[in-house]
Design a protein around this nucleic acid. Structure first.
Length: 268
DNA sequence: ATGGTAGGTACCCTA
């Protein structure tokens, strides 16, 4: 089972790139963030025709929006509203497997970016981001145990490790790598013992990125990247993890997203 | 220290 996450930055604009991605990677499940469209304008028929008849989409006008597109039927689908907002950042599906009694749940997340100023007292967007991560931490802790087979993935907008950014020192006061948000994400990770599927394969001392800013003349040459997109698994799933890929070349596709697809293979 | 680009929308917001 190949499971993929991608912040697509407008699903309508980049539908041709979704098709290219499918041809190239053939994922079983595609999780998208920043689809930026209400459900009635989501290109659903194109997705179905591309081989993904099972879809769970939750979007809004202009901002945010998440989607799960699957080759396989799922038994349940959920929409969650976070921090008392209706802003389309968290959905989930349940998959029956032969490996586990309980369904495997896949949670697709788009954590708020948090604006520019890393001070929650003067920046509401950063305050929202911190509250959002706290709420995710307590919600997962209250509703699940470490023995449940769970996957949480998406654009977390936080690069937690030193080598998840091009310069740890220069980004300490830059939203996405500040100690306060890293601490909250790490607390959430610890609560259910989430395993970072990418760092399962890539040593922590090795640079690893999934996002490069548009505001750069040559993203590849300067290589000022950050690892903002993540796939986490609970312990029961880790033995079945068999591979990963970060599709860095997608940053050079025509009209690219600033994020690249991240995927894992799990033998389910 | 500053400004750089992109997408959606409606003359500005978010990333």
């Amino acid at each position: 089972m190949r499971i993929l996450t991608w912040n697509i930055n407008s699903v309508r604009l980049r539908l041709p790139l979704v098709k290219k991605l499918i041809r190239q990677c053939d994922p079983d499940i595609i999780c998208l963030q920043e689809t930026k469209t209400p459900d009635e304008h989501f290109p659903l028929q194109d997705i179905i025709d591309a081989g993904y008849p099972h879809t769970h989409i939750h979007g809004m006008k202009s901002y945010n929006g998440v989607a799960i597109l699957s080759r396989h039927a799922f038994t349940a689908s959920e929409i969650y509203h976070r921090v008392e907002k209706q802003d389309c950042r968290h959905i989930a599906i349940h998959l029956e497997t032969s490996k586990f009694k309980k369904p495997v749940e896949i949670h697709c997340l788009y954590i708020p970016a948090g604006g520019d100023e890393p001070d929650p007292a003067i920046n509401d967007k950063f305050a929202h981001k911190l509250t959002f991560v706290d709420e995710m931490n307590s919600w997962f802790s209250e509703n699940y145990s470490k023995d449940d087979p769970l996957i949480v993935l998406g654009d977390f907008n936080i690069a937690p490790l030193e080598h998840d950014v091009w310069s740890h020192k220069q980004l300490l006061k830059v939203v996405s790598h500040t100690p306060v948000e890293v601490e909250k994400l790490t607390a959430m990770q610890g609560a259910l013992g989430w395993q970072d599927a990418i760092r399962h394969f890539v040593p922590e001392e090795e640079k690893c990125y999934t996002w490069w800013s548009y505001r750069n003349r040559d993203w590849k040459k300067s290589n000022r990247g950050r690892r903002l997109d993540h796939i986490w698994l609970t312990a029961p799933l880790v033995p079945y993890l068999s591979g990963y890929e970060i599709l860095t070349e997608a940053r050079d596709w025509e009209k690219p997203s600033d994020h690249v697809p991240v995927m894992i293979d799990v033998d389910l």
